[in-house]
């Protein structure tokens, strides 16, 4: 067990590996993305709460222990979004170490107020885990290079765990027949109702038409999705990381094209984590400084 933990720890955090400018900029970008998206979620939800919500139908998270309805009026949810933005800025510029922890707590409050009507949305979970990573890293590490390594390792660990957990849930709840194409027919019909409800019209795309005409295409799509989720934990290992993360990204595009559901924040974050940005940034630096770039030469050092 200890050996597994040691191996996993080295694969995830790689504190001993040299850190390039590309790595530093990459983690800065991830951090900026998380802070900006957390604020955006909170503003979006804040206005929605103020405009539409008056009661708690299904309490989630901390709302099971406190009455979250105090955020429904007097523009308190909007004020909460302003606080998230303020503390996010304090955290990003390292003005006050607990700032990200406060962002995380306020973000949780805003989520439980927004989704008090019964929908359990997973669109913001990865950003929430990212904020938790930032909160912990600033509290537990003092050197910036250590914080950067820990943040990325934490994200890869819990993102891989989450997607694999989703695959396990499908196999437990439905069994090995989960990818049967007829199930996708049912979900496409459901999404048709949702899209009509949202926009007043629904036009199936080419992939949806193929699946509706022959559900075996649906079986192929669902098998791909289940496998992509099932192997997601392999992103814990550096050698597989970029391939697995991009496999999950392609699964998200599959969900978009078959069911018109786009997990925007999760997909963008995965693209930010799943492409070799340190190599690209290093190559850009080299090109700017010397007039030529050799990205392949940087590959080993950057990863």
């Amino acid at each position: 067990m200890q050996r597994i933990a040691d191996t996993l720890s080295h694969e995830l955090f790689a504190f001993d590996r040299p850190e390039t400018r590309g790595h530093r900029w990459h983690v800065h970008l991830v951090e900026l993305f998380l802070v900006v998206y957390a604020a955006w979620f909170c503003w979006d939800w804040g206005f929605y709460i103020q405009r539409n919500i008056t009661e708690v139908l299904l309490p989630l998270g901390i709302a099971q222990y406190i009455d979250i309805s105090f955020l429904f009026d007097h523009h308190l949810a909007v004020a909460n979004a302003a606080l998230v933005t303020l503390f996010g800025a304090l955290g990003f510029f390292r003005v006050w170490r607990p700032a990200y922890a406060i962002v995380f707590a306020l973000f949780h409050l805003q989520y439980t107020a927004r989704y008090s009507l019964g929908e359990i949305s997973h669109g913001s979970n990865l950003v929430g885990m990212g904020m938790l990573a930032l909160a912990l890293t600033v509290l537990f590490f003092s050197e910036e290079s250590h914080r950067r390594r820990f943040t990325m390792g934490f994200l890869y660990f819990f993102i891989g765990l989450g997607y694999t957990s989703a695959a396990v849930c499908k196999l437990v709840a439905t069994g090995i027949t989960w990818p049967h194409g007829q199930h996708l027919l049912l979900w496409i019909a459901e999404r048709k109702v949702d899209v009509l409800s949202k926009f007043g019209a629904f036009d199936p795309n080419l992939l949806q038409e193929m699946i509706l005409a022959n559900y075996h295409w649906g079986t192929a799509v669902l098998v791909f999705g289940l496998v992509a989720e099932g192997v997601s934990f392999l992103m814990w290992w550096r050698r597989y990381r970029y391939y697995i993360v991009m496999l999950v990204v392609s699964m998200h595009f599959g969900i978009l094209f078959t069911m018109n559901i786009f997990f925007a924040a999760s997909t963008y974050l995965l693209i930010l984590l799943g492409l070799p940005w340190p190599i690209i940034i290093n190559a850009a630096y080299e090109w700017a400084e010397t007039g030529s770039a050799s990205p392949s030469g940087k590959l080993r050092r950057a990863t």
Partner: peptide, 19 residues
């Protein structure tokens, strides 16, 4: 318990739905 989840969405395939 946001942001923690077992991610059960679409796990019960083939069941009737309500929208």
């Amino acid at each position: 318990f946001w942001p923690f989840s077992i991610y059960p969405m679409f796990s019960q395939a083939g069941n009737p739905w309500t929208r």
